[in-house]
Amino acid sequence: MKLKINGKSVDVQSGPDTPLLWVIRDELGMTGTKFGCGIAQCGACSVLLDGTVQRSCVLPVSAVGDSEVTTIEEIENDPVGKRVVEAWVDKEVPQCGYCQSGQVMAATSLLKSNDKPTEDDITAAMTNLCRCGTYNAINDTIASIAGTDAAKAGDAQ
């Protein structure tokens, strides 16, 4: 089966039911996309499918079809993704970092569809779990990318 991923078309041998996550990690050897729960609860496995965030642990590779898959390995080649990564580094969002590939993908997806998200938009879109508790930093960083963070200045004393 063919898979369009990170701007390339690759041949994939894994069985059709194999979730995209394991094709990416095991067969294609890209480990930036993480495994956390396997049941679409945590978001560590988030990738973009035609620019929209998807949880790859529950997406059979056969269901990807013609869609264009983007993983964290490619995210800096996307103009929005690049800005997200730069802001993530600048604001030092990650703690352990394990959830952060997924967080960056989710933030990129949000900002691609809505470049001026409100606080509620951000909360609604950013549902990935982070056990290290970076939620405030994630929300503030997205607001800073969108330029909607003026009201927040000085809040995280």
Partner: peptide, 16 residues
């Protein structure tokens, strides 16, 4: 942090 870029881009390597 010395590792913030790696942790923001999936380049940090865990046991997994």
């Amino acid at each position: 942090r010395v590792d913030v870029y790696e942790k923001s881009t999936g380049k940090a390597i865990y046991a997994m």
